[in-house]
Design a protein around this nucleic acid. Structure first.
Length: 497
RNA sequence: GGCGCCAUCGUCUAGCGGUUAGGACGUCGCCCUCUCAAGGCGAAGACCGCGGGUUCGAAUCCCGCUGGCGCUACCA
């Protein structure tokens, strides 16, 4: 059965990988896929691509569920709700990929590769030195299959690589762009099965899309270059390929692919910062075209239902849209003001002064309070949209601005990686102090200044735990951004103290 | 570097051979107003990246160039 044949049921999917906070790009793709499916009476599948055990983050999967549901982007089939093609978690489907790899091996469309990471690295170094494109040199491709099988059986570590045809080219159709051709000379012998037995995205995605009867692969533009590998795989398996739709990539202000460094990308952040799901959906719908002409201001405000009724996939713009926070904020304001006073009050109560949030903040203030009136003085940073610490607050005595900024950058990286619990945070901060040559006290104070805007606060680690990673990182990055944008100040006199 | 994709105001976009190139965000001004927002009105802002074609006529079609972006992992 050909899932992409005319008349075949429409089935689409998103395949996020649980490697961190749920990403705004995931929401964008989910929205587009959902609309595509709903407009055609199809099904929308959520599949978790947890094949990278090195980057796996345990809480991430649940956060993806929560974030998508917060936006109202509900799926028809998925790990938590099952479906006819379960399981929907790739880590639970490994036998399928191993069988697929074995089939490919047997058919001579793939081969075992025993090259070590060190050899691959030196190979790439040599290629770079010779100004050659970095590509696997196919050293293991000529190994007799029997010999390779014997070495594998003897316990030698190996990966399975796709045997890309030595000449010719692969052409596929992108529904938005037409035919795209890649010369085989430019397609690498991609790793299909890693030495840990897990598949790479390329293998897993093809095997699963086929097994799940996916009719249309609607994904981000960054996948165009690897599509020929996927097409080659479908061909090797003798399976019909789905239709491919590559959507424009969301961008930072400087037009680069949207990234956490330059833009808040965590859906957790947007929820905590008080954006409304309807506004976020509306905003994403505005990006990349697809909605009919906006003749006036009112036409730019629309709901998910409006998108269902009017969104047109063939009207999608191919230029990557800048994710303009200013416009998102304006839209969000529009929605907030449209709320009834009762609904608005409820939103404030639930979102800003949520019972659970307050319950965690109150104990932090209690020990250092004399009148209840001081509560907000002590805890304001938990509720502010942003804090901008003045230089005398964030610049430690005896440190230069350059030095401080360097530590702030390292601090951001350390907090990105740390487990979000006070003990883990403390360990990370102390380790950072060590490597940066700062005292723990200085590091704690810098972080306190950047997050709270003050030099005095409730216990920092506990405050961070409550405040959350997404907003903490946003404050640090916003600070770094402001400092980077600021012209280098003259060798300033030390702030008088 | 190689390969690929893309290209209308600062930003999001409308336009799909003949328009004063329209709207929105942002910016600026005026009005409203105790302030600030919101709201109303208005302004500035795009020789449609550049150069060639095709055509009576190109933002719209074709080619080249340039620029931007993406990919170039045992990450997705």
């Amino acid at each position: 059965m050909n899932p992409a044949a005319a008349g075949a049921p429409i089935r689409v999917r998103i395949a996020p990988s649980p490697t961190g906070d749920p990403h705004v790009g995931t929401a964008y793709m989910a929205l587009l896929n959902l609309i595509y499916a709903r407009q055609r009476g199809g099904r929308f599948v959520l599949r978790i691509e947890d094949t990278d055990r090195a980057r796996f983050v345990a809480e991430s999967e649940q956060m993806i569920f929560d974030a998508l549901r917060w936006l109202g982007l509900e799926w028809d089939e998925g790990p938590d709700r099952g479906g006819p093609y379960a399981p929907y978690r790739q880590s639970e489907r490994t036998p399928l990929y191993q069988q697929a790899a074995a089939d490919l091996l047997a058919a001579g469309r793939a081969y075992r590769c025993f090259c070590t990471a060190e050899r691959l690295e030196s190979m790439r170094r040599a290629q770079a030195a010779a100004k050659l494109p970095p590509r696997y040199d196919r050293a293991c491709r000529s190994l007799p299959p029997a010999e390779a099988a014997a070495r594998a059986a003897a316990g030698e570590a190996f990966v399975v690589r796709l045997a890309v045809p030595l000449d010719g080219a692969t052409t596929f159709r992108d529904e938005l762009r037409g035919a795209i051709t890649f010369d085989h000379a430019n397609v690498d012998d991609q790793v299909l099965l890693k030495s840990d037995g897990f598949p790479t995205y390329h293998l897993a995605n093809v095997v699963d899309d086929h097994a799940m009867y996916i009719s249309d692969v609607i994904r981000a533009e960054e996948w165009i270059s690897s599509t020929p590998k996927h097409v080659l795989l479908y061909d090797a398996f003798g399976w019909p390929a789905p239709r491919f739709w590559h959507m424009p990539l969301l961008r930072n202000k400087d037009k680069s692919k949207i990234s956490k460094r330059k833009n808040p990308v965590s859906l957790i952040y947007y929820r905590q910062a008080g954006y409304l799901p309807a506004a976020m959906i509306n905003f994403l719908g505005l990006l990349g075209g697809g909605m009919p002409a906006a003749e006036d201001a009112a036409a730019e405000k629309f709901s998910f239902a409006d998108m269902l009724a009017r969104f047109q996939f063939d009207q999608i713009r191919l230029g990557g849209p800048v994710f303009d926070l200013e416009k998102l904020r304006w839209l969000n304001g529009l929605y907030l003001r449209a709320l009834t006073p009762e609904a608005f009050l409820e939103a404030v109560r639930a979102s800003v002064f949520g019972e659970a949030y307050l319950a965690r903040i109150a104990p932090l203030a209690q020990e250092r309070i004399e009148t209840l009136g001081q509560f907000f003085d002590l805890t304001d940073f938990f509720f502010l949209d942003a804090v901008v610490p003045p230089r005398e607050v964030f610049l430690p005595k005896k440190r230069t601005l350059e030095d401080t900024l360097r530590v702030a950058v390292a601090l951001t990286a350390a907090l990105e990686a740390a487990e979000w619990t006070p003990p883990a945070l403390e360990a990370a901060l102390r380790a950072l102090a060590q490597t940066q040559g700062w005292s723990a006290k200085e590091v704690f104070m810098l972080l306190r200044a950047l997050v709270t805007g003050k030099t005095a606060s409730p216990p920092l680690l506990e405050s961070l735990e409550v405040f959350g990673r997404a907003r903490t990182l946003d404050r640090l990055r916003r600070f770094l951004e402001i400092q980077a944008a600021r012209p280098a100040p003259p060798p300033a006199p030390r702030p008088a103290e």
